[in-house]
């Protein structure tokens, strides 16, 4: 009984390593497919549409609400210390350092990542990928590589839009509703948000998140069991794994960037 259990554990462990190995092999194959995209920008543009443009609405709406909530909550706390002019700083720093990259990446995983997995998984299930191989078209270069590049480009843009919209959302609530002085909202922000420490680091974060989420989404789709159940499981795994990966990586990156 115990040995059965041990053996199962061993098998599970090997399976996990096998998956990690396959994920990396796929990653390198996708990277090798990137130069070929230079001559076919159309492929990437089409993917930027489905990965980026279609995520725009949810990103703008969430950014707006998150900024507004930050202003409300921040104001209530700051006003107790008579520091409500710092509202701009609180809103902007929370957004560009953390919430912009992280929340945008979580939304991206749910909106674009799951769609990517489902699409690729379905293409595998209906043998479209096999058919391409038999037509001497490499699906990794033709299907996966442009999707990967599009995800990598779209994520920092989406995160920037999220943060910028959020800052204005905070402005509407903080200045418009709660009566914080508009001048100090912006000037405090400018005095305390650093272009390198905060903005650039935030963009680096979202580049990393974009890479990881897109990678996971593509791998899960490409690696799924080719049945409808397999696709639906893979889609769920994409959302769960990439969300966890984003949060864990955020911790590591934050410690590295702002740790000192």
């Amino acid at each position: 009984m115990f040995f059965d259990w041990l053996q199962q554990l061993g098998h599970r462990g090997l399976d996990i390593f096998e998956r990690i190995g396959r994920a990396h092999l796929l990653f390198f194959a996708i990277l090798a497919g990137q130069p070929g995209l230079l001559s076919r920008p159309r492929l990437v543009i089409a993917q930027l549409y489905s990965v980026g443009v279609l995520s725009l609405l949810i990103i703008v709406m969430s950014g707006l609400f998150v900024g507004m909530v930050l202003a409300l909550q921040g104001y209530n706390t700051l006003v107790k210390f008579g520091a409500e002019e710092s509202l701009g700083t609180v809103v902007a720093l929370s957004l560009v350092r953390e919430l912009g990259p992280v929340v945008a990446a979580l939304l991206f995983a749910g909106r674009a990542g799951s769609a990517l997995t489902a699409e690729i998984g379905l293409m595998k299930t209906t043998e479209q990928l096999s058919a391409m191989e038999m037509m001497a078209v490499d699906p990794i270069r033709r299907i996966l590589a442009p999707r990967f590049l599009a995800g990598f480009i779209a994520m920092p843009l989406l995160a920037s839009i999220f943060s910028a919209v959020g800052v204005f959302g905070g402005y509407f609530v903080g200045v418009g509703q709660l009566g914080v002085d508009a001048g100090s909202y912006w000037s405090q922000m400018q005095a305390n948000v650093d272009i390198y420490d905060d903005i650039v680091n935030g963009v680096i974060k979202s580049l990393v998140f974009g890479l990881v989420v897109t990678w996971i989404a593509i791998f899960e789709g490409h690696d799924c069991t080719p049945t409808s159940e397999g696709v639906s499981r893979a889609t769920t795994r994409t959302v769960v794994h990439s969300s966890l990966a984003v949060l864990a990586l955020d911790f590591i990156l934050t410690a590295l960037m702002f740790g000192d």
């Binding site: 379905l122 209906t126 043998e127 479209q128 391409m132 038999m134």
Partner: peptide, 12 residues
């Protein structure tokens, strides 16, 4: 080589 797949496998 050309191959006709069992269920067509057209690009959807």
């Amino acid at each position: 080589m050309g191959m006709l797949f069992q269920n067509g496998a057209l690009l959807t």
